[in-house]
Amino acid sequence: MSTTVSPLSQTLHWTEADQPQQAHWRSERGAPPPKRVVLADDTTSADTAYRLACEGTALLWRGDFHNARQLLQALARRIDKTPARKQRKAPKEAGSLADAFHLHRQAQAQRARVLNMLLLPINADYSIPLRRAPNVHAACLAAWGPADAAAGNSVITLRELQGVTSTHEWRRKGIEIPALGEPPQNRIHPHYGVYSPVRGEYIDLVAKAPLPPAGIAFDIGTGTGVLAAVLARRGVAQVVATDMDPRALACARDNLAQLGVAQQVQLLQADLFPEGQATLIVCNPPWVPARPGSPIEHAVYDEDGRMLLGFLAGLKSYLAPGGEGWLILSDFAEHLGLRTRAELLEAFERNGLKVLDRLDAKPVHPKATDATAALHAARAAEVTSLWRLAVA
């Protein structure tokens, strides 16, 4: 059984049948339990639920499970139906792509706050005490570890439970990675709380870039272990892969074993670099210098560019003579006005690094070609690059 992290930390309180009630509050992102809770069931209208949720009142569901799902969809439709007057105001408010990005994140955060007001009970054995509720035991077991009867019952948002179950399906089926070879030995199975490698262009860049002379490779921030696996499949005899997240390390361990490359890869819990030097050091840091709003967003948002700048600052010390550092980075942040190309190049120079080459790839994900997608101008212009760096 892989190592898991329990999100149980606080207690939710409410009144039911004139009696005070309480249960453990489950929140992966560490959000506090709602202060105001009312009971809701199949008789609760979507308009009433929406009004209460917008006011900050949570609804603890006591009706049919499938009706709860329908109510959540109805709440989402009400949020997404922006009044015309607000749509006319948006372009003025968003004076630049950076402004548009911040407004978009604010809107997404507000959307999440409202939708997370619909709560579900979960028994200590991971069963859901509602009519027509699905069996989520396997998904909860994979996400949180063995059920603990002593922990008692708990409450979770319906959206978070949906995340648990959908991630379990991804973990069960896996994601095909062409760079790892032919099926079925080319699948990565992401665990709950570990970012999935859905942007394949950066993996292809690592699979195609010319390898430096044989030696040890470091994979910094390994996540699912996909890049360490690609390097191992390319013939790198020894890879040291690091990550700070125990879930990521457990996920990488399972994937590397399933792919048959575990003997070539050593996993370490470390902040950026392991001890020693390597002839190849690979890092795919979060691409956007902004504050994460939840644990899973740490794979996308790198507040103040901490991981990027930390990697560049340490690279010179950890590279063996003649070695290369591969930085995989999208220029999405540049198009948003959150970082400039000049700032990136200056960081290379400041840390005693020179650019040997740069390999580019255009994203192929649906949002890159969807003119209606948020921040489309930046997404359409985005390029993902593998910078081959060496000591100057």
Results as ranks from 00 to 15, higher is better:
I216D: 02
L315K: 12
L386H: 07
K367R: 15
R132S: 13
S96D: 10
P178Q: 11
M1K: 09
G276E: 02
L336R: 00
Y195G: 00
T43G: 09
P246Y: 00
D148M: 05
R350E: 14
L249H: 01
T369K: 15
S96L: 11
D42C: 06
N135D: 15
D302Q: 06
F332Q: 00
Y192A: 06
I328P: 09
E382Y: 02
L12I: 12
D42G: 04
E297F: 02
S385K: 02
D357G: 14
R171K: 03
K89M: 12
D302M: 02
D254R: 09
L211I: 08
W61R: 10
K362T: 15
V239W: 05
A361N: 08
N116Y: 08
R78A: 00
D148P: 02
A333K: 03
D271Q: 03
G223E: 12
V355R: 13
V355F: 02
A257Y: 07
V226E: 11
S154K: 11
S27E: 07
T279N: 10
L338A: 11
E55W: 03
R199D: 09
I177S: 06
A320G: 13
Q73Y: 01
G30F: 10
A373R: 07
C283D: 04
A23C: 06
V300L: 13
V239G: 05
H335N: 01
C54I: 05
A76W: 05
A380R: 05
R199K: 11
K35M: 13
P121H: 09
L386E: 05
Q70G: 15
L353G: 10
V355I: 10
R29W: 07
P289I: 01
A49Y: 01
R233C: 14
L308A: 06
Q108P: 00
H376N: 09
Q263L: 04
A278C: 07
L161N: 08
D302Y: 06
S196C: 07
V198E: 05
R187D: 00
L280Q: 03
H137K: 13
H189G: 01
Q185V: 06
A133Y: 05
L259D: 08
L227K: 09
P121E: 14
Q70F: 08
A229E: 13
L120P: 04
N116F: 06
S385M: 10
A333H: 05
A252P: 11
P321V: 06
C251P: 01
T340D: 03
S6P: 01
V265H: 02
G225R: 09
L272D: 02
D18Y: 00
Q106M: 06
T167Q: 02
T224M: 06
P246T: 07
T57K: 08
A139G: 04
Y301G: 02
R233D: 08
D80Y: 02
P129Y: 07
R199L: 13
N153H: 15
N351E: 11
W144P: 00
C140V: 03
L327M: 10
R358P: 04
R77H: 10
L59G: 12
L75T: 06
S6R: 11
A133P: 08
L338H: 10
G181L: 14
